[in-house]
Each structure stands twice: as structure tokens, then as C-alpha cells.
Amino acid sequence: MDVLEQGVGRLFTDPDADKARAFFRTKSRKLESKLMTVKDAVGKFAHDGDYLAIGGFGANRIPTAVCHELVRQGRKNMGFAGHTSTHDFQILCAGKIFNRCDIAYIIGLEARGLSPNARRYMESGDVEVCEWSNYSLSARLKAAAMGVSFVPTRNIMGTDTFKFSGAKVIQCPYTGTRYVAMPALFPDISAIHVHEADIYGNCRVRGITVSDLDLARASKRLIITAERIVHNDVIRSEPSYTVIPFYLVDAVCEVPYGSYPGNMYSEYFSDEEHLREWLKAEREPEEFKKFLDTHIYNCNDHFDYLEVNGGFAKMQQLRQKELMLLNNKR
């Protein structure tokens, strides 16, 4: 098939579906407990240099504990899928854990403003970038989940977003229409936060799924953090609720309030006050160092982090806010 146009960006991952098949052939299909701590999961499955993707949508249903642990364990030189990333991106930039980034949305925290530290990091020249859009990265994950090396899409053409991407334009063999061939994205390691999982990794998610169902299937290794561990009987009682099956999963960690300070659908709202503290602390690098010590480096785990930020009383307040039981002024 002829390539009509090509972006100048570098592909940070190999889209070859045969190589992916060879890897997935070796992945365990055993129904066995994968329950472990976040510390062990990150230690075992996330390595320096790996390409990382994070589930959820920025500050909604994100695996905060995994992001903190990657920073605490000092991961370096990773690749990162900057797909719908906001607070997760902010955390990973604080640890400078990646040096190359596929960009769809970074630096910003939507209506909350821009992260000064993430911006400094991305303007430093230390991070190699390749441009995409949110749907482009969703489509790249979908191609990988399908087990093929690309899917056609009809976005980004005619723009610098295409020019600075690693994509190619091809022609449809049936109609002659021009399409972007979005290269499959197989992350080495991903982390997704879910509402419920059993010890084997069978997962249930409520609310929006963003791109997580494809992300789970595209990833070579997958860490699940869950609000609650449920018995396998619960999963088997309603199999239609299972959206991520166990054979995609390498580690299962029970992390209540695991998306904090992000929002978790029908569980708790985002802690806007704490997210503002992050943005404020980032303005002064020295101040930010102290802030990171308090909130990440001097914490052993997510429980410590929750304690530092108001513990159970705060969580109860956010839960009531999520369910619209309170006056919701932010």
C-alpha cells in the first residue's frame, strides 16, 4: 500500500503485531491469585526504560497509588502515553520518570489550569515528543487490542498534529478515500484503577470506561488497583459485568480511595482543594520539593497519603459530595 504522506515524529513503540503475538503467547492464562502490594507490583512489573500508559481520564478513576510508587521507586527513562493525562501526568513529571512522550493532552488540568512543573519539564528539551490527539491514541490502542498493526482513522489530516506525529496517510483500496493509518500502540506496562476486582484480576468498572478496555488488551503487562476486592463468586454471579478478564492482568492491588485526589464515579468526588495545593506548590521548585516529601517520598503507601490529607473524615466528605448529598460549592 502506498504511503501518501508521513509525519516526522518517531514511533516509541513497535507496532508489529506478530512480535506482539509472540509476546502474548507467553502470557499466563492461569487462574491464580495475583494479589500483592502496589510496592511489589511496581517493583516486579514496571522497569526503567519501559513504555508506560495510565488508565482513566486525568483526574478521574486514575491509579494514583501506582503513579506515586513509580516516583518513589525512582523509575527513569520511561516512555509515556500522554493520553487524556492531567493529574497523573503532573505526578509522573514530579519524578521525571519519562524522557519520551506521545502527546494527546498533557500539562493541563482542564478547567483547573496548567501545571507549572509539568510545563517546565516539557519546555526543558529533556523529553522527546511525538504529537497525536486523544482519539488517535485511543485508535492506536484499539489496533493493538485487535492484534493488528494499524487502524484507519479520519482525523488529524491537514494539520501540524499530523506533521509532528508518527502516522502515515494511505488510500482506501475500495473507495480511494485518504485515511490516517494509526500505528498500533502496545505499552510495556499499564495501570488501571477499577471499582471491583477479584484476586485473579477479573474487573468491574462503573461509569465511563474512556479507553481502558482497549488499553487493558493492548498492554503487555497490566497492574490493576481496585477500590474493593470481591470474591470470585461475585464475578461469576454476573459475568456480563466483567470488562477486564483475569488473563490480561499481572497484578491486583486493593487500594480503597485509590483514585484520590481524583474523582471515582459513584464513590467519591475529586479533592479540588488538594489539587489546587499541588498547582500552588509547583510554582516554587524549593517549595515543591518539600511538598513532594510530605505527600510522596515520606509516605510508605497510599494509606499514608490519605492520612496526610485528612484521612477518613476527608474521604467521607468527598463521598458525600460525589453523591450530591451536600452543597456542592467547590
Binding site: 500522554g82 487524556t84 502527546i103 494527546a104 493532552y105 498533557i106 500539562i107 493541563g108 496548567l114 510545563r119 516539557m122 519546555e123 504529537e131 497525536w132 490527539s133 486523544n134 482519539y135 488517535s136 482525523n155 488529524i156 494539520t159 498534529t161
Partner: peptide
Amino acid sequence: VRLPGSGGAND
């Protein structure tokens, strides 16, 4: 100056 990028805007 680096800004957030496309997000879903291009799409």
C-alpha cells in the same frame, strides 16, 4: 511555551 496539545479537539 508548551500548551496541552490537541486533547480531543482535533478529533
